[in-house]
């Protein structure tokens, strides 16, 4: 089987996506840098002539990232391999966000990045320069005992047993409500399906999201 087609067998592209002729360059920097021209940010601590050398040095390539977590600006030195989840838990001491599978398959690590719910275990921290992150610790409005309406709803609906999945469920629920996928219990179920609960509190979780969305 032929693996590709000459362009004659598929119609040519209607409009070019961008200008290939534009002059660009790859810059090397050891710290976070906004470089004009072709490169937004480059992080590479590998010594040597090629910034994209294929053999990493003995010291793991690392860099620095500045991001806002729950309204507070943080700058951290990180190994490039660090996930947002590990940055939050291990370096920033925010252990409310949980690690279940570390593979995108359970939702325990759900946080909001720039307002959208994502799996923090699959987000590399080094890619989050300038990002706004909200975790379970940043959800409640004030310093005192006030709770976010969804946190309150989880208590009222008894939506957890062991509580391990709960921070992820709540952050995902906040995303679900913002996205407007709370039209019915059926819809909530589907749009909360990215969060696994080993204790099987699904019925109560759906009720809590419904309550906070103002559905009841």
């Amino acid at each position: 089987m032929s693996s590709e087609l000459p362009d004659s067998r598929v119609p040519p592209e209607a409009e070019p996506a961008s200008r290939l002729s534009r002059r660009t360059f790859i810059a090397v920097a050891t710290a976070t840098a906004a470089v004009g021209g072709g490169v937004v940010v480059v992080r590479n601590l590998v010594p040597g002539p090629s910034p994209l050398g294929t053999t990493p040095a003995e010291t793991p390539p690392s860099g620095r990232v500045s991001l806002t977590v729950n309204g507070k600006r943080h700058t951290a030195e990180i190994d490039n391999r660090t996930s947002l989840l590990d940055l939050l838990r291990e370096q920033l001491g925010l252990t409310g966000t949980k690690k279940g599978c570390d593979a995108g398959a359970c939702g325990a690590c759900t946080v909001l990045v720039d307002g959208r719910r994502v799996n923090a275990c699959l987000a590399l921290a080094v890619r989050l320069e300038g990002a706004e992150v909200t975790t379970i610790e940043g959800l409640a409005p004030g310093e005192d005992d006030d709770l976010h309406p969804l946190q309150q709803a989880f208590i009222e609906q008894d939506a957890f047993q062991c509580g391990y999945c709960t921070p992820g469920q709540i952050m995902s629920g906040v995303g679900c409500i913002r996205e407007g996928h709370t039209g019915s219990r059926e819809e909530i179920r589907e749009w909360m399906s990215g969060n696994i609960c080993r204790c099987g509190c699904y019925v109560q979780v759906v009720r809590a999201v419904e309550q906070a969305a103002g559905g009841k």
Binding site: A17, R23, N44, L124
Partner: peptide, 13 residues
């Protein structure tokens, strides 16, 4: 495994 990281802003880059 360790890796280095580069962010590009256009297709040529």
């Amino acid at each position: 495994h360790p890796f280095s990281y580069v962010k590009v802003s256009d297709i040529a880059g």
